[in-house]
């Protein structure tokens, strides 16, 4: 007599699963990765691979020897994402051992401490990046200049990022109009022909990845759109008030890690709210905090801190903002 499977309904399932979603994100990161390799050359490639490898290694070691669990999750792609995103958030000239330390913090402290995939309250890659930024401020803010198809193993020429130029200039009391002459053109910023962290330079490459994720239904539009829109509106208001003191909104959209943050980091499903209403609030919160830090804070860039702060607010948002209930009062 044959035995039949018994389970509760439903008996069919959507084809998407966690593994496919995670690898989908990895595929979405490829355009940005290619652009960074094009502009920063071999060091960018080495750094990304090193970050991915060390993230995988740390996850493997922790699971095998600390958790002693028989099931390993390194193939689910989440550690690869963490590694890639961490690499995308550092300058290509970063010493190799620092990215390994960053990976250890990202995987060990930010992810596995809480029980692994799905349980971490903060985006692991961002925790790793902020750790590196605070521990090694000089290395983390020395930006190599772009040199397309550079095949040498080290970058030599360095320069500030566009946000850095503005911040420093404003502190010296110079006006925006003059400072804007020193920053790259918007076309360069859109394509990625600017200095900065590995993955954040090219807005177009990130958008391609974002559209891919939207089509594959890995992310929804809520967080990226509300994030980018709120930055645009907030900086727009400031710019209208005083265009001599505040940079224009388009500059804010293209400069720094905003695109990368809005498309890949803030949308991390584990650390963002579950319902769409809360996601919109989350996006706006990220946007407002980013501008606050950029304009009035000590750091020229505020994306990582903004997202981490909103990560901390996620459980609260989940609790307070409820989806509309059918037939509810």
């Amino acid at each position: 007599m044959s035995t039949y499977i018994l389970s509760g309904s439903p008996h069919v399932h959507d084809t998407q699963d966690v593994k496919k979603i995670m690898w989908g994100v990895v595929y979405a990161l490829i355009p940005a990765f290619l652009v960074s390799v094009y502009f920063f050359g071999i060091p960018a490639l080495m750094l990304s691979l090193l970050a991915v490898a060390s993230c995988l290694l740390f996850e493997f070691l922790i699971q095998k020897y600390l958790f002693k669990s028989s099931e390993l999750t390194i193939t689910d792609g989440s550690a690869v994402i963490t590694g890639l995103l961490l690499a995308f958030n550092v300058p290509s000239s970063l010493p190799w051992w620092q990215i390994v330390v960053g990976s250890l913090v990202a995987i060990g402290a930010a992810k596995m401490t809480f029980g692994g995939l799905g349980k971490n309250p903060f985006n692991p890659a961002l925790v790793g990046r902020v750790f590196l930024l605070i521990s090694f401020p000089v290395d983390m803010t020395t930006w190599p200049k772009v040199s397309p198809l550079n095949t040498s193993l080290t970058d030599v020429i360095t320069g500030p990022t566009s946000l850095g130029i503005i911040k420093e200039g404003l502190m010296k009391g110079e006006s925006i109009g003059k400072l804007m002459q020193n920053v790259p053109t918007y076309t360069d910023m859109f394509v990625g022909n600017i200095g900065g962290s590995l993955g954040e330079i090219s807005a177009i490459a990130i958008l391609i990845g974002g559209i891919y994720m939207l089509v594959r239904k890995i992310i929804t539009w809520h967080i990226p759109v509300s994030y980018i829109l709120s930055v645009f509106v907030f900086t727009g208001i400031l710019w209208l008030i005083n265009p001599e003191k505040y940079a224009d909104p388009v500059f804010h959209l293209l400069a720094g890690g905003l695109m990368l943050g809005a498309v890949f980091m803030a949308t991390d499903m584990v650390t963002s709210p579950v319902n769409h209403k809360a996601q919109l609030i989350f996006g706006v919160g990220c946007g407002v905090l980013t501008v606050l830090i950029r304009v009035w804070g000590a750091y020229p860039e505020g994306v990582s801190f903004a997202i981490l702060i909103m990560n901390a607010a996620t459980p609260l948002l989940n609790n307070m903002v409820k989806p509309k209930r059918f037939g509810g009062a």
Binding site: M1, T3, Y4, L6, S7, G8
Partner: peptide, 22 residues
């Protein structure tokens, strides 16, 4: 001997609601 294979939430309370047992 098992006459069926139960798949699903590993909760006796739920399995009890669902069927007589494997």
């Amino acid at each position: 001997p098992q006459k069926a294979r139960y798949e699903g939430a590993s909760s006796c309370a739920f399995a009890h609601m669902l069927f007589a047992g494997e």
